[in-house]
């Protein structure tokens, strides 16, 4: 059975994956001087508050 391609969903997925890949390479690269491991502890602090 042929599955109809949802082009809108496909385009959205492509954009999401591009953002993740580019964002990851930029934010978490060892060459990025702002790449500190404080993020998770900051997140935990927010969750403790709720």
């Amino acid at each position: 059975m042929n599955r109809k391609i949802d082009y809108k969903k496909l385009a959205l997925n492509i954009v999401v994956y591009i953002i993740i890949i580019v964002g990851y390479l930029f934010l978490y690269s060892p060459y990025n001087k702002d790449n500190k491991s404080e993020s998770s502890s900051k997140t935990e602090f927010i969750y403790q508050q709720f």
Binding site: N13, I19, I20, G23, L27, D34, K42
Partner: peptide, 21 residues
């Protein structure tokens, strides 16, 4: 899976970028 990927983009990329910059 789609929702998890969406969540990863929001939390680990966009929120992290807003937090840092």
């Amino acid at each position: 899976l789609q929702l998890i990927v969406f969540g990863i983009m929001h939390k680990f990329i966009l929120a992290e970028a807003v937090s840092r910059y």
